[in-house]
Nucleic acid binder design. Structure first.
Length: 280
DNA sequence: CAAAGCTCCTGACCGC
DNA sequence: TGCGGTCAGGAGCTTT
């Protein structure tokens, strides 16, 4: 499933295709994905120049010349593929789960495909972005300056829930999904079931460093794939080979000198993988 | 308020 | 081979 690094990879893939070009034709093949695609979505997009493509948390934002912003989220299984109108012999024949198609004046097609339909495609004026329900309570970007040991410590201090759940909470820090939260807690040697408010300042610093490192490494690797994610050019990424705990239930812990098997538990209805010996 | 539960959805997987 | 049942999971919304 796309987490921050994968969305960043998609952003870098589509930006050169879209920025500075004009949307000549939009096709929506259903009324809603997870939420309704606005009735006026097409009319607000067609004819507009795309000024800039931005990643905000796990959202992709397409800033248009009109001041509108296309908001796109890949959900669990969303992917974006690139092709050209010319390459499609029959341009009106699309694949299953192709929900939205963007065509530019250069003849490029950007296709949003999402089998599980947990994704989002909507539009909002840039003046309303700040107060938009998707963004108003959003926590800090994990790769930004405002995310640091003391700010994380302050956020966690009031939380009696577990660390695993707190780090998945987008009001604390954005962009962290199930995989990277598991990995970051393993790297920092913290048990996922510990209460968030019990984490000391020093451990917060270490956790922040590890989160940054793991995300940056994943971005460099071009994002992970995990079964249902393909890079924007259609080629599979490879970061999934370096998960240390995620999806490794029963396997031996990767830490030198530790032979404990990785355990899987459920927290807030989601799988958590961890080493019961290395993480305390 | 915080925290837990609910919800959207399909494909993969399992046992029969 | 086909068929039900189960599960996964992002994150906003609703309920407690």
């Amino acid at each position: 499933m796309p987490e921050l690094p994968e969305v960043e990879t998609v952003k870098r893939g589509i930006a050169p295709i879209l920025e500075g070009n004009t949307l000549t034709k939009i096709i929506t093949r259903r009324d809603k994905i997870r939420i309704a695609i606005p009735q006026d979505f097409i009319s607000r997009c067609e004819g507009q120049e795309i000024l800039q493509v931005v990643r905000k948390a796990k959202y992709l934002l397409l800033y248009l010349g009109s001041g509108d912003v296309i908001i796109c989220h890949l959900g669990m299984s969303g992917r974006i593929s690139l092709t050209s109108a010319k390459a499609r012999k029959e341009p009106d024949i699309y694949e299953k789960h192709d929900h939205v198609i963007f065509e530019t004046d250069k003849g490029d097609l950007v296709i949003y495909n999402d089998p599980r339909r947990f994704g989002i495609m909507t539009i909002c004026h840039e003046n309303d972005l700040e107060t938009h329900r998707f963004f108003k309570d959003m926590g800090s970007e994990p790769l930004g300056n405002e995310f640091n040991g003391s700010s994380l410590y302050a956020k966690l201090k009031s939380k009696k829930t577990t660390l695993k759940t707190a780090l998945l909470d987008q009001r604390v820090v954005v962009g962290m999904g199930n995989i990277y939260v598991c990995e970051a807690l393993f790297d920092t040697g913290i048990a996922p079931e510990r209460r968030a408010c019990d984490l000391g300042q020093n451990k917060c610093e270490e956790l922040v460093r590890n989160i940054r490192e793991i995300l940056e490494r994943a971005i460099k690797a071009g994002g992970s794939t995990l079964k249902d994610y393909a890079q924007v050019d259609g080629e599979l990424g490879y970061f999934q080979h370096s998960f240390k705990v995620y999806g490794r239930e029963g396997e031996q812990c990767a830490t030198k000198g530790c032979s404990a098997p990785i355990e899987r538990i459920t927290q807030s209805g989601r799988s958590t993988f961890y080493c019961p010996r290395c993480q305390n």
